[in-house]
């Protein structure tokens, strides 16, 4: 049997809200070490990679590896039936064709149970190589969300340039052009408010704003986001999930024809 009880159930709600517009169906890989998911959007331009380690659940039981194919829109609808402070348990019997979701109120006086039919998903898995990135930018996730939203009024692409001075986002469109430049923070009250650029070498890449906008829906998961860039490789956008794992997005760049 597979059973994973998540005391902070709202983490799962935020996760699914963050990926449901990008990916329709996904296989949740359940292993003794934890739960993971890898899925591409339908145009194979972006990829979602989720990891939730077993020690983030309480308790976590996984006797054998299981793949749970789940329609994320259905899952998102079901999760809307839970309250933000509910404890959420995911369970799957060994011979079952469904995943069971249990929502438990903090005082345990309300318990709801939903049985979700599993779906067969033929999903192509990719090997993501370890990469030494040219530049790693860390910033508040709300700032990332704001910049992506602001750039979208200008066009459908953004060029992100990292240098020793900081990071610059710029967009061009029919109505005009604009940019936002963030300097590395010198002194901030909280580390979560800081902008840092860890630079091996200056790099500039262009990306579709539509995908960055979808990624930015993960902002409620974490106060900070990390963007990792290298010349001519996919961008890595990472949100940490409390102390238990991460939600990563990869986005192929736009390249010169």
């Amino acid at each position: 049997m597979f059973e994973a009880r998540l005391p902070q159930g709202q983490i799962l709600k935020k996760l699914i809200e963050a990926v449901r517009e990008l990916v329709t169906d996904a296989n949740f890989e359940c292993k003794p070490s934890g739960l993971s998911l890898q899925a591409m959007d339908s145009s194979h331009v972006s990829l979602v990679s989720l990891l939730m380690r077993a020690d983030g659940f309480d308790p976590y039981q996984c006797d054998r590896n299981r793949t749970l194919g789940i329609n994320l829109r259905t899952l998102a609808s079901v999760l809307k039936c839970s309250s933000n402070d509910d404890i959420i348990t995911i369970r799957a019997e060994d011979d079952g064709d469904s995943a069971i979701l249990i929502f438990e109120s903090p005082s345990s006086d309300r318990l709801s149970e939903f049985d979700l039919k599993l779906v067969d998903i033929d999903n192509e898995q990719l090997v993501i190589p370890d990469t030494q990135y040219d530049a790693v930018v860390r910033m508040p996730s709300a700032e990332f969300q704001r910049i992506v939203r602001d750039m979208q009024i200008l066009g459908d692409s953004v060029t992100i340039a990292c240098s020793k001075d900081g990071v610059k986002f710029s967009a061009n469109g029919e109505i005009g052009s604009g940019s936002v430049r963030l300097k590395q923070s010198s002194a901030v009250d909280s580390e979560d408010d800081a902008v840092t650029v860890d630079l091996q070498q200056a790099v500039s890449l262009t990306f579709a704003l539509r995908y960055l906008s979808l990624f930015s829906k993960a902002a409620p998961l974490s106060p900070t986001v990390t963007l990792s860039f290298s010349k001519d490789v996919p961008l890595l956008v990472e949100f940490r999930i409390a102390d238990m794992g991460h939600l990563r997005f990869y986005l192929a760049p736009k390249i010169d024809e």
Binding site: S46, A252, P253, K254, I255, E257
Partner: peptide, 14 residues
């Protein structure tokens, strides 16, 4: 003009 690349150009299938 720039063209959108796909992930298959960078990551190999498992």
């Amino acid at each position: 003009a720039k063209k959108q690349a796909t992930l298959g150009a960078f990551f190999k299938p498992k």
